[in-house]
Each structure stands twice: as structure tokens, then as C-alpha cells.
Amino acid sequence: MEHAFTPEEAAIVAASQASEATAELLRFIRQGAYSERAPFDVEVTGKLAEALKLSIDIEGDPAPDSILDDDERKLLTDLRDALVAFLEGWVG
């Protein structure tokens, strides 16, 4: 089930996810791997993927008259679709 965030709510969630991931990456730099089995204490990749997906959602579909060309618009759409599939598999 997908959440229906307002753009402001999506921005808060995206910033929170990106901040948590950033904090964990900084912790990793200072202290090293979290354990012998895992480098991180939190799901860094999943949090960054969600933050990126939400930021794409906030921007919305690029208009045909945007600065993006057709190939770039297609790449952005493909990236969002891949992030959705990744997150569904990650959380699912």
C-alpha cells in the first residue's frame, strides 16, 4: 500500500531517511563496520533509495518543455520505477 504524502510530508520523510543514512555513513567512517557481519547499523541503501524516490515524486513528471530532453525524462521515469521495485522487494 502506497502512502499518499503531501509534498511537504514527503520532503520531511525524504530528509529524515537521507539524514539517518548520512549519520550512519559518518559513523562508519569514524568507527568502522557495525559488526563482522554488517557494515551498517541501519539500512543505508534502503533509506537513500526511499529518499531519492520521494524527491523524484516531489518534483513530479517532467513537463515536455522542461530542460530535460526525451532521453533524460525516460531515464528519470525508469529510475523511479526501479526504485519502486527495489523498495517493494526490500520491504516486502
Score class of each variant (00 low, 15 high):
Thr6Val: 05
Leu87Ser: 02
Ala63Arg: 13
Ala10Ile: 01
Phe28Met: 10
Asp81His: 14
Ser35His: 04
Glu2Asn: 14
Ser16Leu: 03
Val91Leu: 13
Glu43Ser: 10
Arg80Met: 03
Thr6Phe: 04
Leu76Met: 14
Phe5Trp: 03
Val42Ile: 07
Thr77Met: 11
Trp90Ser: 13
Phe28Tyr: 15
Leu52His: 13
Glu50Pro: 01
Asp41Phe: 04
Ser66Val: 01
Pro39Asp: 15
Glu72Ile: 04
Arg73Asp: 04
Asp41Ser: 15
Glu72Cys: 07
Ser35Arg: 09
Gly89Pro: 06
Leu79Cys: 13
Leu25Ile: 07
Pro62Ala: 01
Leu25Gln: 09
Leu68Thr: 03
Phe5Val: 00
Val42Lys: 00
Lys74Gly: 08
Ile56Val: 11
Lys53Ala: 15
Ile67Ala: 14
Thr6Leu: 10
Arg30Met: 09
Leu68Ile: 06
Ala4Ile: 12
Ala21Arg: 07
Thr6His: 09
Leu48Asp: 09
Ile12Thr: 10
Pro62Glu: 01
Pro39Phe: 08
Arg73Ile: 02
Glu24Cys: 07
Leu54Asn: 05
Leu87Tyr: 05
Gly92Phe: 08
Ala33Leu: 08
Pro7Ala: 04
Ser66Trp: 01
Leu68Arg: 07
Arg27Pro: 00
Ala33Val: 05
Phe86His: 13
Lys47Ile: 01
Asp81Val: 15
Ile12Trp: 04
Val84His: 11
Tyr34Ile: 01
Asp81Ser: 15
Lys53Leu: 12
Leu68Pro: 03
Leu87Met: 02
Pro62Phe: 00
Leu76Lys: 14
Leu48Pro: 08
Val13Glu: 06
Pro39His: 11
Ser19Arg: 09
Glu43Tyr: 11
Glu20Val: 04
Phe40Ile: 02
Glu9Met: 05
Ala11Pro: 03
Asp41Glu: 10
Ala11Ser: 08
Ala23Asp: 13
Gly92Glu: 15
Val91Pro: 01
Gly92His: 11
Ala15Leu: 07
Gly32Leu: 00
Val91Cys: 09
Gly60Cys: 10
Glu20Asp: 10
Arg80Thr: 01
Gln31Ala: 10
Ser16Arg: 08
Gln17His: 09
Asp65Leu: 11
Glu8Trp: 02
Gly46Trp: 06
Glu9Gln: 15
Leu68Lys: 05
Leu79Arg: 15
Leu26Phe: 03
Asp61Lys: 15
Phe28Lys: 08
Leu76Val: 13
